[in-house]
Computed example of a mutant assay.
Amino acid sequence: MSFDLPRNVILPVDAVDVRLDPSLHPFERDNQAAIAENWRREMEAKPALYDGTVVLLSALAYRDSRLVGRCHAVKYSTFMLWRKNRELSGAEHAYAHAVLVAGDNALVAIRMGSHTVNAGRVYFAAGSFEPIDFRDGLVDVDFNMIREVGEETGIDLAVAQRGQRYYALSTASGTVIFRRYQVAESADEIARRIGAFVAAETEPEIAEPVIIRHAADLPDGLMGHMKPLIEWHFAGEQA
């Protein structure tokens, strides 16, 4: 199966069948010394980094409106080296975005904190899949979305209205699986709540909320994959 899916186009996704393989990812198995040396340098630059556990794909395909794939738990230090060796690594990254839609149809994204790897970058609150996001070996995309948004912003999406289906956008940097989550409050009220949450945190992951009110309202620091998602939303594509 390897990696077999259209790139740079938004795909409708009715189901995500990505399973966690308990074996070591070949990239981690074969690059132990390089991973350790790169991590040493990363920690010198950003001492707040934590070598937790995330997952990397070893296969992903798009079949009949389904994403089917295989992934492996790896150390974050492995992920950091992989970021610098994507093309020949035999690995890819997938992550999820809850597209947070306010009652006034504006989008609410976040800007990452200065101590993080993506310092200053703007995208929807999100994090890599972790082993906790899997149920009986199968990824629970919505659990990941709700967990990450709650941890970073304090907003509970468990009671929000979900879009009817997922969508995916696969690029050279990874595959984002996304879905609308609609809440009743205005964007300004959501941003106020997020700001209060961040102010109360000892070490917040994010610097601030970012409101996006129309397709041309693109903030500084916007991650490359975000522009197609923003245009998709404001074009009124079906949920």
Score class of each variant (00 low, 15 high):
P22F: 06
P22D: 06
S23D: 13
S23A: 12
L24H: 07
H25W: 01
H25M: 03
H25T: 04
P26F: 03
P26E: 09
F27N: 03
D30S: 10
D30N: 13
N31F: 02
Q32S: 04
Q32D: 02
A33I: 08
A34G: 01
I35L: 01
A36T: 01
E37W: 00
R40N: 05
R40P: 00
R40V: 00
R41H: 12
E42H: 04
M43Y: 01
A45K: 14
A45H: 07
K46A: 05
K46M: 15
P47A: 10
P47V: 11
A48T: 08
L49V: 03
Y50H: 10
Y50R: 15
D51T: 04
G52I: 07
G52C: 02
T53Q: 08
V54K: 07
L56I: 07
S58K: 04
S58C: 05
S58N: 11
A59F: 13
A59G: 13
L60E: 00
A61E: 08
Y62R: 01
R63P: 14
D64H: 15
D64M: 09
S65V: 06
S65I: 11
R66V: 04
L67E: 02
V68P: 04
V68N: 14
V68W: 03
V68C: 13
G69W: 13
R70S: 13
R70W: 12
C71N: 14
A73L: 06
A73G: 02
V74K: 01
K75N: 08
K75M: 02
T78H: 04
T78N: 00
F79C: 00
F79M: 03
M80A: 08
M80K: 12
L81S: 06
R83S: 12
N85A: 10
L88N: 06
S89F: 08
G90N: 05
E92D: 04
H93F: 14
H93Q: 13
A94D: 04
Y95N: 05
A96E: 08
H97Y: 14
A98Y: 11
A98C: 06
A98K: 05
L100N: 15
L100V: 13
A102S: 03
A102Q: 01
A102I: 01
A102K: 04
G103I: 07
D104G: 00
N105M: 13
N105F: 06
A106H: 13
A106P: 00
L107H: 09
L107M: 14
V108W: 14
I110P: 00
R111L: 08
R111T: 11
M112T: 02
S114K: 11
S114T: 03
H115C: 00
H115A: 09
T116H: 00
V117F: 12
N118R: 01
G120Q: 02
G120C: 09
R121T: 14
R121Y: 07
R121V: 09
R121F: 06
F124P: 08
A125P: 13
A126S: 12
A126F: 11
F129C: 05
E130R: 02
P131T: 14
P131M: 07
I132N: 12
R135S: 14
D136L: 14
G137D: 06
G137Q: 05
V139I: 12
V139S: 11
V139C: 09
V141I: 03
V141N: 09
V141S: 06
D142T: 05
F143C: 15
F143G: 15
N144R: 09
N144L: 08
N144H: 11
M145R: 15
I146E: 11
R147Q: 10
V149C: 08
G150C: 07
G150E: 04
G150Q: 08
